[in-house]
């Protein structure tokens, strides 16, 4: 078992004739993912790495029964590609594209929710369930099958953490990068709920970074709903305020979204935060040991199925952000 993708995944690659699309379609196929189709408008009936190409997602789904899509189209066309996949009945869409306008995502995310589908990304490396399937761009050489679930907002930092786990002989069920943008389809909570529900996942690593309040929300969620050992890492402790640190989402503004605030929130609910990515395996081992020797395990109020459907948080949980005012 794994989360979101496994042997039942039948993948369609949107933008398969592009440079990135073609390269990664082949990589995913080589890894053993069931890549059933590619889509590029106007290039139907050609082939890429032996994968049949269709003019639309609708055609591809009708011909192959694809149930998952991965998007490698340029940012200008990314929102449209997501709509197309959703309208063709795809229930899991992974958008790798970086640089998608926030306004486009605001509408798209609303639409995806209304249709009861799941979007991962944009601006993410995708996900990999070792020995089962890979959707996205994560290097398959660094993963190993096992029982750790990894969820992260970043790309190469995730690789660093996964590599450290693999070197410590701690394999993974699924490694997922949810993306570094302000508006993304799947957040930490969605992934934590899925890992909690997955019987093969025995422990969880969560990698966050500055900006937004997703890590703080996740801390509360873990306290209430996650019974498995969790350790975290937060990047951006040295980042100055009001500067965008590469990821559109990684910006500390108006005192909100600092690394310290996130680390404090996690520590407050008993989640250890590693000082370096290389310390994650040791910390997780200790944590697992403590959980297995503990007489009373925390009782989770299991509402996992409710959380798994993307629901809008209640208004009471409204943003703590202050108006970004005062500039006279």
């Amino acid at each position: 078992m794994a989360i979101f993708i496994d042997k039942k995944t039948k993948l369609v690659v949107q933008g398969i004739t592009g440079r990135d699309g073609a390269f990664h379609a082949e990589q995913m196929k080589k890894y053993g993912t069931d890549v059933v189709a590619g889509v590029t408008p106007g290039k139907g009936s050609s082939k890429v790495a032996g994968i049949p190409v269709y003019n639309s997602v609708e055609e591809a789904v009708a011909a192959t029964g694809a149930n998952t899509s991965v998007i490698y189209v340029p940012p200008t066309f990314a929102a449209d590609a997501i709509y197309e996949a959703i309208d063709a009945g795809i229930k899991l869409v992974v958008c790798i594209t970086e640089g998608v306008p926030v306004n486009d995502m605001l509408k798209t995310v609303e639409y995806v929710k209304a249709k009861g589908a799941r979007l991962i990304g944009p601006n993410c490396p995708g996900l990999i369930s070792p020995e089962l399937a890979k959707v996205g761009i994560l290097p398959s050489t660094i993963v190993k099958k096992g029982s750790v679930g990894v969820v992260s907002r970043s790309g190469t930092l995730t690789y660093e953490a996964i590599w450290a786990l693999t070197l410590a002989d701690m394999g993974q069920t699924t490694c997922i990068g949810i993306g570094g943008d302000p508006i993304i389809g799947t957040n930490f909570i969605d992934c934590l709920a899925a890992f909690e529900a997955d019987p093969n996942t025995k422990s969880i690593v969560m990698i966050g970074e500055i900006g937004g309040s997703d890590e703080e929300t996740a801390a509360t969620f873990i306290k209430e709903h996650v019974t498995k050992p969790v350790v975290a890492f937060i990047a951006g402790q040295t980042a100055p305020a009001d500067k965008r640190m590469g990821h559109a989402g990684a910006i500390v503004s108006g005192g909100a979204g600092t690394a310290k605030g996130k680390i404090d929130a996690l520590n407050a609910v008993g989640i250890p935060v590693a000082g370096s990515p290389t310390e994650i395996p040791e910390l997780l081992k200790e944590r697992i040991k403590r959980f297995s020797t503990r007489s009373t395990r925390p009782t989770a109020k299991t509402v996992v199925t409710r959380i798994a459907t993307p629901a809008r948080p209640a208004k009471a949980a409204a943003p703590k952000r202050k108006p970004a005012g005062k500039h006279k």
Partner: peptide
Amino acid sequence: VVNGAGLAMATMDLVKR
């Protein structure tokens, strides 16, 4: 000089650490 924003931030943090 780092590739990836998250790793670049983590590298800075370690320098400080």
